[in-house]
Design a protein around this nucleic acid. Structure first.
Length: 849
RNA sequence: GGAUGUUUAGCUCAGUUGGGAGAGCAUCGCCUUUACACGGCGGGGGUCAGAGGUUCGAGCCCUCUAACAUCCACCA
């Protein structure tokens, strides 16, 4: 027997291990249609947070649902080496021991990184188990696996041969702390306080000067020109002359370009091609030199005179002091401007001219825009994808790191010629590029490289690619989704997945992003310990709209747990009422009492709604239909009715009622199971007839029965509510005994005992025509009179209230029906419905008068 | 500058193809009724941001406005 209270800890114990042991997570049943997903591989950098919990629960619900529906579900497990993030963590750890990566050297450092990976992979496995994820571990992959490395090398080589990967000198975003290049999307911009420095640039052969403003004086050593707008009357005449750079006394040409904003600053702009992307573009246009003035530690280099070796910010201060001493500082303004920060280290990135590897994006993007068949859910995210693709720049893929896929490019020591090769080149005349690839370069191949590609004859690849579904948050669309799409189209000729379900981000109770610095992060494990994983899963996946952010609100997890407790206790009631070794019997709908029919009709409707929303990945809607059924139809209504059914009928009928109860319970359990698999399994195994696990059950199917509501039962529930209301408004105790006269014998016969139980009736009199003076309540084709020392005032008040209500309704109804447009244009059934209502209202009003 | 989202009960949010506004929490009243006090029963509380429009009918569709949020681009 079930315990009185749902205890998540006990319920969860041992189940996951058992499922795993039974092999339920392993795909491969060829008699079934495949349904495939790959997990967005979490970084091996730390603990999983609520965002992961949300993301994986959505997938798990899908997987469990599809499995019960009879699909061969393949949900591939895996993790990401997360090059830059992991390397930063490992270096940080080493630093705390006083070691730098250079002390260790590449190989030793990588050993440390693999140790780190192992530790964190173990953690992640434990958390997946806690969450109850039915991941296929037999196919688990890591982005640095040899098989994935093969795919990466193949992709690199192929794109290189096609001219879609090139090595070039361009302005990239450099992270001076992690000492590596970044791609554009790894830079986050924020509004920072800064200073705008106004300097005098003396004009050569003149006593005049030009005022140039800059936020970054330290880059003045890289200046090669000053630009003004040729339409700017103040400066037009200066074009062609020269000014003196106050930082290093070099003469710079004054040039004209309409790109310069006359309104901004002084209207004169310094040009630093090696440290600014726009200036770099100008240098291409006007063939200007490019002078790099910093090294890879963001320290000033030999082009900076006595400032050489200084940190960039120290140099800025010193240089400004010097210029001030020279009498060339006009003013310093406080401003707020957007500054790029490294997504990982959060340091201010330095735009720098460097030789790096790039993916040429235009052709790949075109293909992605034209050929992608990915169905984004919700659909609006396809715009997000599209827009990014339309404006994408070339992708800087080389990283000055060690933890990652090493770039398979080899340089001739003498000539510098490059060979790109999928197999190592051991020729002593060649050395391999030191850099590794951006993590996302390998993640982009995840949906197919994990399945054996580039071996297109691999069984898994043939069976499970393209994937059926990918689930991720909207902030990953650019980083990952878009790249999977263009790589997949380029290399497999197909979109990587059919559907792409996008969810939002999880925030704290005040709507703020969860972050370490705010200290507002929530550890899923703490939540699970307190409320159970099923409650967490239910909270995460219900009560929100697709694609929207959600707030973590503990009370909602609590109420989810309460809901599960409700299901638990309803199951306990059903199971305890069965008695001993009950075997469910088959029942015929037509032979059931109306109260049993009614609940089955409602269950049927629920199954249809739930299934149709589950099919659309609308888990919130599906769960809300189930919730209403469980609470209102089952627990609050039928479950109470069944207590009467179990007393009044003959033994045969009692068996039938029990079977109906078991049937409904089983259906509820199966529908709640994808959301709450642990309690689902626990309750399922307590059913009188069950398989070895709910994981090998079939999903619920509607019965082939009529859909219309059972009128008498509707009346019964309304009567009960009216009687309860009557007692409350007359300050009578709920169990106060009253005398009822029911007018409508032919309709109500067979329901007396049901009414009696809920109304604590002193007496129920059935009649076909009543002369009662008691308070009257009207229902479809029948009336109820309550007789109990009711005062005339009360009766009159009730009557007046009813009349007013009916008159208002009749007015409303007639208003609609007198509108010829409504009658002629609205659907027939709507008009008919309104006609019926009007007739009913009129009849009731006539009865009252 | 471009785009997207949000605005519904005190709070947090749902709302299916347009057809009489819902949940959780909070609140008020009653109840130790034999599944559940992590409960039951009943109640109060909403000009669905604003203004137009389409429609027989709009929380839902169209246009505009406002506020908030997010993303992209620019910022010498």
């Amino acid at each position: 027997m079930l315990e009185k209270r749902y205890d998540p800890k006990k319920v969860e114990e041992g189940k996951y291990e058992n499922w795993k042991k039974e092999g339920y997570f392993t795909a491969g049943d060829k008699t079934k249609q495949p349904f495939s997903m790959v997990i967005p591989p979490p970084n091996v950098t730390g603990k999983l947070h609520l965002g992961h919990a949300w993301n994986t629960t959505i997938q798990d619900i899908t997987a469990r649902y599809k499995k019960l529906q009879g699909y061969d579900v393949m949900w591939l497990a895996g993790m990401d080496h997360a090059g830059i993030a992991t390397q930063a963590k490992v270096e940080e750890k080493l630093r705390s021991q006083g070691i730098s990566r250079y002390d260790l050297g590449r190989e030793k450092f990588l050993e440390k990184a693999w140790e780190w990976k192992k530790e964190y992979a173990d953690n992640i496995h434990k958390q997946w188990a806690k969450m109850g994820l039915m991941l296929d571990y037999s196919r688990e992959r890591f982005t640095l696996d040899e098989s994935l490395n093969k795919a990466v090398l193949h992709v690199f080589k192929t794109l290189y041969d096609k001219g879609l990967i090139y090595r070039g000198e361009r302005i990239i975003n450099f992270d001076p702390e992690l000492k590596t290049a970044l791609s554009n999307i790894e830079v986050e911009y924020s509004e920072d306080k800064g200073k705008f420095y106004y300097f005098k640039y003396p004009i050569v052969d003149s006593k005049d000067y030009l005022v140039v403003a800059t936020t970054r004086p330290e880059t003045m050593f890289g200046d090669v020109a000053v630009f003004v707008n040729p339409k700017d009357k103040r400066y037009k005449h200066l074009i062609g002359k020269k000014v003196i750079n106050p930082a290093n006394e070099e003469a710079l040409p004054i040039m004209g370009d309409e790109y310069v904003d006359i309104e901004f600053g002084t209207g004169a702009m310094k040009c630093t091609p090696a440290h600014d992307p726009n200036d770099f573009a100008s240098s291409e246009k006007y063939n200007l030199p490019r002078i790099i003035c910093m090294d890879l530690n963001a320290k000033m280099n030999e082009n900076c005179g006595r400032y050489k070796g200084m940190d960039r910010y120290e140099c800025r201060d010193e240089l400004v002091k010097q210029i001030e001493k020279d009498g060339r500082l006009i003013k310093i303004e406080d401003i707020v401007h957007t500054v790029g920060h490294s997504e990982r280290s959060h340091t201010v990135v330095e735009p720098m001219l460097m030789k790096q590897w790039f993916v040429k994006m235009r052709p790949l993007a075109e293909q992605a825009l034209n050929k992608s068949s990915v169905n984004f859910v919700p659909n609006r995210f396809s715009n997000t994808f599209r827009q990014w693709m339309e404006n994408v720049d070339d992708w800087c893929i080389s990283r000055q790191l060690w933890w990652g896929h090493r770039i398979p490019a080899y340089y001739n020591k003498q000539t510098g010629d490059i060979i790109v090769s999928e197999t190592p080149i051991n020729d002593p005349n060649y050395y391999q590029d030191e850099d590794v690839l951006d993590t996302w370069f390998s993640s982009a191949l995840w949906p197919f490289a994990t399945l054996g590609w580039p071996n297109t004859e691999s069984e898994d690849y043939k069976r499970y690619f393209p994937n059926s579904l990918l689930v991720t948050a909207y902030d990953i669309i650019f980083f990952w989704v878009s790249r999977m799409i263009f790589d997949s189209l380029e290399f497999t000729g197909e979109s990587p997945f059919k559907d792409c379900l996008i969810h939002g981000l999880i925030r704290d109770s005040q709507g703020r992003k969860m972050s370490k610095s705010l200290g507002n992060g929530i550890d899923p494990i703490d939540v699970i310990d307190k409320y159970g994983v099923d409650a967490l899963r239910y909270f995460l996946t219900t009560g929100s709209a697709p694609g929207q952010d959600i707030r973590y609100i503990e009370e909602k997890v609590q109420s989810s747990a309460n809901y599960l407790n409700k299901i638990w206790n309803s199951a306990r009631y059903v199971l305890e009422s069965l008695g001993g070794d009950f075997k469910p019997v088959a029942f015929k709908f037509d032979e059931l009492h109306e109260v049993e029919k009614d609940i089955l009709v409602k269950l049927n409707k629920t199954i249809k709604s739930v299934t149709s929303f589950m099919d659309k990945y609308e888990y919130s809607m599906a769960s809300s239909y189930l919730y209403n059924f469980v609470y209102d139809d089952f627990c609050s209504s039928y479950l109470e009715m069944s207590k009467v059914s179990l007393q009044k009928g003959d033994d045969e009928y009692k068996k039938v009622v029990k079977s109906v109860l078991v049937y409904i319970l089983k259906n509820i359990i199966i529908m709640i199971y994808p959301f709450a698999p642990f309690i689902g399994e626990e309750l399922y195994l307590a059913l009188p007839e069950h398989k070895k696990s709910i994981m090998i059950e079939e999903y619920v199917k509607p019965l082939d029965i009529p859909e219309n509501d059972i009128e008498q039962v509707e009346n019964l529930y309304k009567m009960i509510q009216d009687i309860r209301n009557y007692k409350v408004s007359n300050k009578l105790a709920p169990n106060y005994k009253l005398r009822f006269i029911v007018e409508g014998e032919s309709i109500f016969k067979g329901f007396e005992e049901y009414l009696a139980r809920f109304s604590f009736a002193k007496e129920i009199i059935l009649t076909s025509k009543s002369t009662s003076k008691g308070m009257r309540f009207a229902y479809k084709k029948m009336n109820l009179y309550i007789e109990d020392e009711i005062s005339k005032e009360e009766l009159e008040a009730k009557r007046a209230k009813d009349i007013a209500f009916l008159k208002a309704e009749i007015a409303r109804s007639e208003g609609m029906l007198n509108n010829p447009n409504f009658v002629s244009k609205a659907p027939k059934e709507k008009v008919e419905l309104e006609n019926n209502k009007l007739a009913e209202f009129k009849k009731k009003l006539a009865e009252l008068n």
